[in-house]
Nucleic acid binder design. Sequence first.
DNA 1: AATCCATACAACCGCGTGTAG
DNA 2: TCTACACGCGGTTGTATGGAT
Length: 264
Amino acid sequence: MGRAPCCDKANVKRGPWSPEEDETLKNYLKKHGTGGNWITLPQKAGLKRCGKSCRLRWLNYLRPHIKHGGFTEEEDQVICTLYSTIGSRQVHSFFVYILSKWSLIAAQLPGRTDNDVKNHWNTKLKKKFLVANTNSTVKTVCPQFTTSTTPQSQVEDCVFDHEHSAESHVLGSEQTHILVPSPLPLGSHVSGLGSSVPLSSEVSVLSNSTSLVKQENETQWFSYHDNIEGENEALLLDFVYEDLLLSNGFVSQEKSSEIAPSFG
DNA sequence: AATCCATACAACCGCGTGTAG
DNA sequence: TCTACACGCGGTTGTATGGAT
């Protein structure tokens, strides 16, 4: 016996949403909210749609402040770097939440949704990223191949196998943190970089609006960023690949102090 | 002009997980 | 403690669009 369907597929509309449906959903949510139940919402709102479909439409398209259109270079860079950093792992924030990798990455990009980021990655960035990484990684992990004569898929498989085995090793040994170089003075602030973050120990700058911070005498990393409301949020990270950050063009604190002399 | 192909974006599906009863 | 249900996620598919042939 298979899983029970979430709605009566025969009686729900599928495919692209019409402007009228969008308006109906928006108006209903403005007046009543979700009522804590997306499954019954379409019936109440007078929509012939699956509840899941309504939820997705709202989250990915109709919500206020959602950005549509092309991603900027900086956004691309943040996505690539965070993807390198967190890979396929889940990231745990303060005490309660468990975020997926796409949610976390989207959280660093105001106005972008996880679905948006995921689609952008799958259609554009993945290839760019693979080519860039393959060219540098293949020489060390797949010396039997040359990028000019070996089919791309074979090279990618080899690199993937290498990365996968490295990940298993890290998880198996329960090593969850990779440390960064010497700390900044206690009480330092990052300023002139989009946000101001009190530092108690070490920092690696991720973007204009995000910083990674490891607290003094702690073993855990936090990601600080400005959320959509402009408030500063912190997420507790599993680990940080500092070398990957550096190899993707982000700077260590020694360098960042050159471009941001207000450190400390 | 017609057809094919690649790309981008929107939407769907199935499954894992949390939670209320 | 158990179970059913709803939510949220990752993977995948569908469709529109534009460029190449």
